[in-house]
Design a binder for these strands. Structure first.
Lengths: 221, 221
DNA sequence: GTATGTGAAACCATTCACAGCA
DNA sequence: TGCTGTGAATGGTTTCACATAC
């Protein structure tokens, strides 16, 4: 199989979303043009990505929607349900527990953890909140590989260490901390403030580039 | 002034965070080594970024912390406070209103908007919730340039259109919708489910690359 | 004609190698 | 020796040009 560039892999979920929408509208074929217009990407890039993903289309028609969906789902490993745990049931943590979007990619939050006696035992958005002392036991028992970290900054590193020691391979970190983790663990940092300031910086450069930045091809928005 | 690569611009806020922490610890000088270890970046990359940002350091000492902070703040345009509005006071919207991290980058949410009579008039985390009908008036009056969109998918495009018509230049979109926007508006999409599935995909490729992906140098985690 | 497919070229970012300075 | 600074080389991604299929 061919080598797929990381940026391409990151765009695949976006294609998947559009393709699924097309499928639910009973469209058998989806063209590059359609995908590129929906996602604001250059048509040529979509075609190249499809080619990397070994999706094959037909001239004049486009790509077979269902087949393409299957290919992408396979590459992303979405075939079967995938559980994540969430640690830190503050306002952001609670919002994520109520969030229903994860199922779009066949993922779900199976359990939440906190140390507050007021929260332990409660259920938020169908997810039960456990005592954080139970964290290691739960992860080992269920062999969960992914964790969503919504704890205050000060506790983030400690919890991360415990997650990793218990076998977690991927951490979605919403705290502003930069976690120290071993090579084999992937951390993705989703810093809300950072998102906003990056947006601001890009707007600034876009309108009056007193500092000139390159705009090779912006990521999917 | 020199052209700064977009990836560099995106790393600047991270440097800023570390530099500020150093400053508050009264460290006059900050070295590349220190920055690179904190952020898990290669030292050479940090130096190159600093060079792009026209920060100049001294051999053996490093970079002057305060001066470097000023440079980066200037490039990112953080000099003065910057307001954003938030639309959609659901659970995620509320969490963001209570979130106190924006001030790290001298930004704040000045007003929130929703259509629910139960929310209009209330104050969440010091931010007042207004009737969404008041949106255009508020934006025009205060000349706000940034908006955080935490509305359900179905309403996202309509609100975006109204924001843009009122003069907003940057939208932080938390809905899963891909917005159609004119060239001059920057949209940054922060899809929570997408983050998790991207994390999963990267973990998958990292452990058993049946599909091989390139790993040039991952973004800051 | 219209849309896919692919090797080559262009472009951008990262890394290297080595220079300079305290 | 330890750290910054920079032009050149490398590596990866996007884009182009053109071939191909219906």
């Amino acid at each position: 199989m061919e080598k797929i560039p990381l940026p391409t892999v990151r765009r695949l979920p976006a294609y998947l979303q559009i393709l699924r929408a097309e499928q639910s509208r009973k469209k058998e074929w989806t063209s590059t043009t359609m995908l590129s217009e929906s996602l604001r990407l250059k048509a040529i890039q979509v075609r190249k990505d499809m080619s990397y993903a070994s999706c094959q289309g037909r001239p004049k028609k486009g790509f077979n929607t269902s087949e393409c969906i299957r290919r992408i789902e396979h590459i992303l490993g979405l075939a079967n349900d995938c559980e994540a745990v969430l640690i830190g049931v503050g306002s952001l943590g609670s919002a994520l527990l109520k969030y229903d979007g994860f199922s779009r990619y066949d993922m779900y939050v199976g359990a939440a953890f906190d140390s507050s006696p007021f929260l332990i035992g409660t259920t938020i958005g169908e997810v039960k909140v456990h005592d954080v002392d139970f964290l290691e036991t739960y992860i080992r028992r269920t062999a969960v590989s992914y964790a969503i970290l919504t704890v205050p900054e000060t506790g983030a590193q400690e919890i991360a260490d415990r997650l990793i020691a218990s076998g977690v391979r991927g951490i979605l970190n919403f705290s502003s901390t930069y976690l120290k983790t071993p090579e084999h663990v992937i951390v993705r940092r989703d810093d809300l403030a950072l998102s906003l300031v990056q947006l601001k910086a890009e707007v600034k450069f876009h309108q009056k580039p007193e500092v000139i930045i390159s705009r090779p091809s912006h990521p999917i928005t």
